[in-house]
Amino acid sequence: MTTTTSSHDVISSDRVEGTNVYNAAGEKLGSIDDLMIDKISGQVRYAVMEFGGFLGMGTDRYPIPWSMLKYDTSQDGYVVNLDKATLESAPRYATDNVPDYDDEYSLTVNKYYGMP
């Protein structure tokens, strides 16, 4: 597989996974572990960010509505308008306990972040 730097507007999900996420102050919050995609519309609903833990152990997963993340070319990562304290109280789950992402769970996540 050849990896090249590109300025295209479309990116493969495997290149998004592992991308750093920063807050507006430029502090690294974590990195994207997974994308949750709506099966019907094909739109990305959530970026699941790894946050906490050490060397991947004890790391929780935090679903963040995709529309909250903005790509910043100067940081080569995504920026979200959240501070660490807000994120620490956000809905999360352990790697081995992935929720169903049903309507109830999505409502909980969206309500926490003030999304419709």
Rank of each mutant, 00 (worst) to 15 (best):
L87G: 08
M68G: 02
G30E: 03
I11G: 06
N97V: 12
Q43V: 10
T59N: 03
V44T: 13
S12L: 13
K84F: 04
G77S: 01
L69C: 01
L55H: 09
L82N: 04
G56F: 02
K84T: 13
D103E: 13
K28A: 13
D96M: 08
K84M: 10
S13E: 11
A85N: 15
L35W: 02
Y46S: 01
Y93T: 03
V10A: 12
E88F: 01
I11V: 13
G56S: 08
N23F: 00
T95N: 10
A24L: 07
M36G: 05
A25S: 09
N23A: 00
S31R: 05
Y22T: 11
M36R: 11
S13P: 14
D102T: 00
R15A: 12
E27S: 10
A47C: 09
L107V: 14
I40T: 15
R61K: 14
Y105P: 09
R45G: 12
D83N: 15
I11M: 07
N20S: 15
D38F: 05
D34S: 09
D33R: 05
M57G: 01
Q75N: 14
Y112T: 06
G53F: 05
V10H: 12
R61Y: 13
R92N: 12
T19M: 13
W66H: 04
A25K: 07
M115Y: 11
L69A: 03
G58S: 02
D102L: 00
D83S: 09
D83Q: 07
L82P: 05
